[in-house]
């Protein structure tokens, strides 16, 4: 159960090796979490992620479970197995791929993969998780969207459009779940220094996985429906969203 401050006791990270996902799990373990599931594609990274969490809090029940966002047919079974072991207070939808915009424009199969992972996979896993949470009458589903979902940009509109779809889906799901005890929170980080963005030119207001985790903790506490990281992005994007296109085009984003 979450406590009065929204701190969960059990956490499921979908995309278990994600740097942001791990930062959130770490933060929750320091607070009240004693059970963490890392769901992801089997890899040394996933195993070492689990090991690092166990080292952080010996005695915590940290487990990995095989999960592929693209294999939507398996989601019921995989998530069903996790929920059968006990309540999950926080489900974090953290998987995602950035893709390679230039290459994906040339080779649409790559773009499809981005769309299927970030959108289709999330719709499937999100609905399955929502139904399980609904059954337990409590819990939060936290969805890592992106500031890129706010307005399509030339440089990353394939990723951006997949996140826009995900963002709209998550907002709607939050509405659908009102009154069920399940809380949906959409998190829109800007540029986060992680594996995903390694080697890319930093955008203004760049932030860290730790800062995203702190924002998630605070959002849970206030039962927020939307969280921007950093917070300054909210007003910034409110302006950028309405900037005339010729102007927006010229911005160094």
């Amino acid at each position: 159960m979450k406590d009065a401050f929204g701190a969960p006791q059990s956490v499921l990270v979908l995309g278990g090796a994600s740097e942001i996902g791990l930062a959130v799990a770490r933060r929750m373990l320091v607070r009240r979490a004693r059970a963490v599931w890392l769901a992801g594609r089997p890899s040394p990274a996933l195993d070492s992620a689990a090991a690092s969490l166990r080292a952080l809090r010996p005695g915590a029940d940290v487990r990995t479970v095989e999960f592929d966002a693209l294999d939507t047919g398996s989601h019921e079974e995989v998530l069903g197995k996790v929920f059968a072991e006990g309540d999950v207070d926080l489900v974090l939808l953290a998987f995602g791929v950035l893709g390679d915009q230039a290459r994906d424009e040339r080779e649409p199969a790559g773009a499809v993969r981005v769309a299927q992972t970030n959108y289709t996979g999330a719709v499937s896993a999100g609905l399955v998780a929502a139904s399980a949470l609904r059954g337990q009458g409590h819990g939060s589903l936290v969805v890592l969207s992106s500031v890129a979902a706010e307005r399509a940009r030339r440089g990353n509109f394939i990723y951006g459009s997949s996140k826009a779809g995900l963002d709209a889906f998550a907002q709607g799901l939050g509405e659908a779940l009102r009154g069920t005890g399940v809380h949906v929170m959409v998190v829109r980080p800007g540029f986060v220094r992680s594996r995903m963005t390694a080697g890319l030119r930093e955008a203004p207001l760049a932030t860290t996985p730790g800062a995203v985790a702190a924002a998630v903790e605070s959002g849970l506490r206030h039962r927020a429906s939307t969280v921007w990281v950093p917070g300054a992005l909210r007003p910034a994007m409110a302006v950028l969203r309405h900037l005339p296109r010729p102007l927006f085009r010229r911005l160094p984003l």
Binding site: F5, G137, H138
Partner: peptide, 9 residues
């Protein structure tokens, strides 16, 4: 009474 962690039942 503290209205902190509502759940549905």
């Amino acid at each position: 009474w503290g209205r902190t962690a509502p759940t549905v039942a």
